[in-house]
Design a protein around this nucleic acid. Sequence first.
DNA 1: GTGGTCTAGACCACA
DNA 2: GTGGTCTAGACCACA
Lengths: 122, 122, 122, 122
Amino acid sequence: MFNIRLEGKLPVYEQLYNGIASLISKGELSSDDKLPAVREVAKQLGINPNTVQKSYALLEQAGLIYSIPAKGSYVASEGVKDIIKKEALKNLESALASAYNSGIERAETIIIIDRIWGAEAK
Amino acid sequence: MFNIRLEGKLPVYEQLYNGIASLISKGELSSDDKLPAVREVAKQLGINPNTVQKSYALLEQAGLIYSIPAKGSYVASEGVKDIIKKEALKNLESALASAYNSGIERAETIIIIDRIWGAEAK
Amino acid sequence: MFNIRLEGKLPVYEQLYNGIASLISKGELSSDDKLPAVREVAKQLGINPNTVQKSYALLEQAGLIYSIPAKGSYVASEGVKDIIKKEALKNLESALASAYNSGIERAETIIIIDRIWGAEAK
Amino acid sequence: MFNIRLEGKLPVYEQLYNGIASLISKGELSSDDKLPAVREVAKQLGINPNTVQKSYALLEQAGLIYSIPAKGSYVASEGVKDIIKKEALKNLESALASAYNSGIERAETIIIIDRIWGAEAK
DNA sequence: GTGGTCTAGACCACA
DNA sequence: GTGGTCTAGACCACA
């Protein structure tokens, strides 16, 4: 159900968190859509239900989803995308400031940006 | 002794961590340099010694400084700057990826970059 | 709730860390189990909440538990027992090597082992 | 001068600490023997002088050596071997207790012991 | 109620 | 004087 690749060295629950947040901001998951059950996701991705549970808990804590006990978890309604965007912006500013402080050059960050957004943006 | 401004909503111990890491990567603190005592920093910045202690503990854990009880804390020796830079790069890539995923435009990130690095870099 | 004795000269937060890790590897605490609240443990053991907080933070850092603010702390999911065992084995090998280097006799270590594991194991 | 191999994943300063402590307990370094200068050791082992400095500081703190500024560092006189042995014993007991707690079998520890002390001890 | 942060202040071992 | 540990107690955001 979830088209999410787990890879890299970040904690699995964090990758899953980011993956779901990404699906929401891309519009592949809309307000009030039901998320697949914790056990479902666990089985499909081959990870432990507790790990999925943790990601869901963090998503709820961040206001991106809401859970109704014994019913399921749903994408939150009010301006979810904005919440995600704001959170991402905050992290970005913090990471950019740290990068600047540690002597990383402006040019280096632009290279990463072009790689991610695609250089076509020229 | 430390020229560090504490502001914003990040935890104080985290700001202090970043501030000291920044001084190291800027070369204002070099390998072998002694850091001011925990209580010294606390008094100067008007914060609690425990908070400073926490920052120092995190810096030691990250390999940026080492502490000898009853002696003091010192900037670590082996490639400290590189450690800081690598850590910052990893955070940056992660934050940029999240930003992209959440629909932030390339132009928006450039604006932040210009604000931090200074637009003169043109 | 926790059946843990605090004694000896190791820091309290370390004894508590070891005690909880031990409960997990003995199976008295299983994946997904909720740990008693920080304040709860503090009251029961007669120690300060901050000290418990420190132990919980170290356990989380070691990947043995995970904490969700305003929810609680839970035993981590993936192979917690293995993590504990591996860590213990590493420490053991290191300590035994140091013991050998410092001239401790084989017989002396066996005496300690018999005291801990119980000589009945014969 | 020092016949010490640095390898494995322990911090270098810790390996150096253990190596020197081992030389002392084996009698290859005796009371009041002069240790090679920090820079000497650093050059010979290809590591940073600060790292050596840290090991020396820890050895002094542990009472194994004493340093006379501008003269050098010397192996301590009173019962150095006993100090090392006591410290090793303390670590050993702690590690064995953790091993027991985490479900490691008595037999497993004996295997390691035989490997280190040599099975000839039969 | 819960984890997390922070202050104020004490004590310890060690140099 | 120094790093480190600990108590007592407050406040915060969040559920």
